[in-house]
């Protein structure tokens, strides 16, 4: 696992937990269960990771520990700084160079289950950013002489297909979500 990837996974977990805490105070086991439920158990977390992440977020002023519940577990709450951080995360598209595809999936999963987040806006902001990346990749490809630069062309094509896959997935998310909101107009996530 390279450092950049590890960092992006770490940041995804951090932001994912913070998004859950924006819905109300929770203790570590609750956070783990809800994180896995939101992401369809695609990213299993161990409880140690949860508490390490909470401790760092406490140090950074994003969460604060409260009282222990009857079973001796500490309940964490989000601070105003933490709430700002969640808002910033949802509002900022992930750029292709940072490429934690997992983070985008986690962000969408969290956006769906977090109140007061306009999922359609999150999807559209990401779509525009990813399309811009695709335009830049295509522009680079146009600058190549394809019989001569076959290897470079294929590498660019690989990135083009990745960006395309992401855009198709975003279209799919939007279609599924709009169908769901038509079927359950009263049901607020």
């Amino acid at each position: 696992m390279n450092t950049e990837y590890a960092y992006s996974v770490f940041m995804s977990i951090r932001h994912g937990l913070l998004a859950l805490l924006s819905q109300g105070s929770r203790h570590g086991y609750q956070l783990r269960a809800e994180f896995e439920a939101s992401t369809g158990a695609t990213w299993p977390l161990n409880i140690g990771q949860v508490y390490t992440t909470l401790a760092r977020m406490e140090r950074d002023g994003l969460v604060e520990p409260g009282e222990q519940d009857e079973q001796g577990r500490i309940v964490y709450s989000i601070t105003p700084d933490g709430a700002t951080e969640v808002g910033r995360w949802f509002a900022t598209p992930i750029t292709q160079t940072e490429r934690p595809r997992d983070e985008l999936a986690i962000k969408l999963a969290m956006a769906v289950t977090t109140q007061d987040v306009d999922v359609a806006e999150v999807v559209q902001a990401q779509r525009t950013a990813t399309m811009r990346t695709l335009q830049e990749l295509t522009r680079s490809k146009r600058g190549l002489d394809s019989p001569l630069d076959v290897a470079q062309t294929l590498i660019l094509d690989s990135k083009i297909f990745q960006a395309e896959a992401e855009l198709r997935w975003l279209d799919h998310c939007e279609a599924v979500l709009s169908r769901r909101s038509l079927q359950h107009p009263q049901e607020e996530p």
């Binding site: 399309m131 695709l134 295509t138 146009r142």
Partner: peptide, 14 residues
């Protein structure tokens, strides 16, 4: 409806 072809454009309108 294919993103890869829209990538050739100067501007993509949604």
């Amino acid at each position: 409806h294919e993103p890869r072809y829209a990538g050739w454009a100067d501007r993509v309108v949604f």
